[in-house]
């Protein structure tokens, strides 16, 4: 299938703008800059060369230096005023939303902050606002990013979702922001396995001088395998709590909401359900409802309830 129109049009306009800014440029450099083959660049230049004002008079067409063209160099001599188009509202939201989320989560390199500032300057403000839900200390984020970039082993204190605290030596590969939370993908020497750790749950970070030895994992490591599907019914007022559970499928049934939720960690899901306990109408299977009841009983026991 032929390339869709808008990506090609965008590249055609981009090539003209790039050549106006940079002067004569070898085809190979254009190919690298725009991420396409030299063959495609030839086709694009061929298209540009026959494009122009209605009537197609020779001096009304985009023009190139034919001698340079024979040497595989694009030298624009008449652009007919063609230039790259400014960012559309959708493009602005798509770019700024992604970058702001990474920056707010503490999961972005410094270049993200400067790139955002440049985009905001031309857009005249924020096309989308990002609200952070707690982020790691800048020192932690910077240390982990630095260790990942230089491939150095890091020692961390980590508090997991079940509130267990451990000291670990990790080999960081990449920082990944998922749903506004920054994780480091790494090889964990303590677990002898690939793991993902939240940056906002670590402290006591020490970057060692030791180079990492494990290669990056092939797949993303933060997705625990679901072990079973839970079926939940809650009153509509607590729909928000189900919306937030990863992978949940919700069906509205009048005053109630039914949800099917893949469960990787029974105790973790049970803890989330306690937050909407008065609105819980049904929890299945028993493995999960028993865990909800067990945790609730433990809360009551310490409170003398």
């Amino acid at each position: 299938m032929a390339e869709r129109a808008l990506p090609r049009l965008t590249r055609l306009l981009g090539i003209v703008t790039y050549l106006e800014d940079h002067g004569a440029t070898p085809f190979a450099d254009l190919a690298q800059h725009f991420g396409v083959s030299v063959v495609q660049i030839r086709k694009d230049l061929g298209t540009l060369w026959v494009s122009g004002l209605p009537g197609h008079m020779p001096d009304h067409l985009i023009d190139f230096d034919a001698w340079a063209y024979d040497d595989d160099i694009a030298h624009l001599t008449n652009s007919q005023g063609v230039t790259q188009i400014r960012l559309s509202p959708r493009e602005a939201v798509a770019l700024v939303g992604a970058l702001s989320t990474m920056v707010a989560a503490g999961g972005a390199p410094r270049a993200a902050t400067t790139a955002l500032a440049k985009l905001r300057a031309v857009l005249g403000g924020d096309p989308i606002r990002v609200v952070a839900d707690g982020s790691p200390s800048p020192e932690v984020a910077e240390s982990i990013a630095d260790a990942a970039a230089r491939g150095r082993v890091v020692e961390i204190d980590y508090v997991d979702a079940m509130d267990h605290r451990t000291r670990r030596a990790i080999e960081p590969h990449r920082i990944v922001t998922v749903d506004g939370v920054a994780y480091v993908e790494c090889w964990c020497r303590r677990a002898s396995d690939y793991r993902s750790f939240r940056l906002d749950r670590m402290d006591g970070v020490v970057v060692t001088g030791e180079p990492i030895s494990a290669p990056p994992a092939d797949a993303e490591t933060f997705a625990l395998e679901p072990r079973f599907d839970a079926r939940l019914v809650v009153a509509r007022a607590s729909r928000w709590a189900l919306d937030d559970l990863p992978g949940a499928t919700l069906t509205d049934r009048g005053e109630y909401v039914e949800a099917v939720v893949p469960v990787a960690h029974t105790a973790w899901i049970a803890g989330r359900l306690l937050a909407v306990a008065p609105d819980l109408r049904s929890v299945e299977p028993p493995a999960l409802s028993d865990e909800v009841a067990r945790q609730a009983a433990a809360v009551l026991a310490v409170h003398g309830g």
Binding site: G14, F34, A98, G107, V176
Partner: peptide
């Protein structure tokens, strides 16, 4: 792709970051 047209030249680089 639009921003690439006005980006300063130089080799593209890889960064150990991702987001979704």
């Amino acid at each position: 792709a639009k921003l690439a047209a006005r980006a300063t030249g130089g080799h593209s680089i890889e960064v150990p970051f991702a987001a979704r």
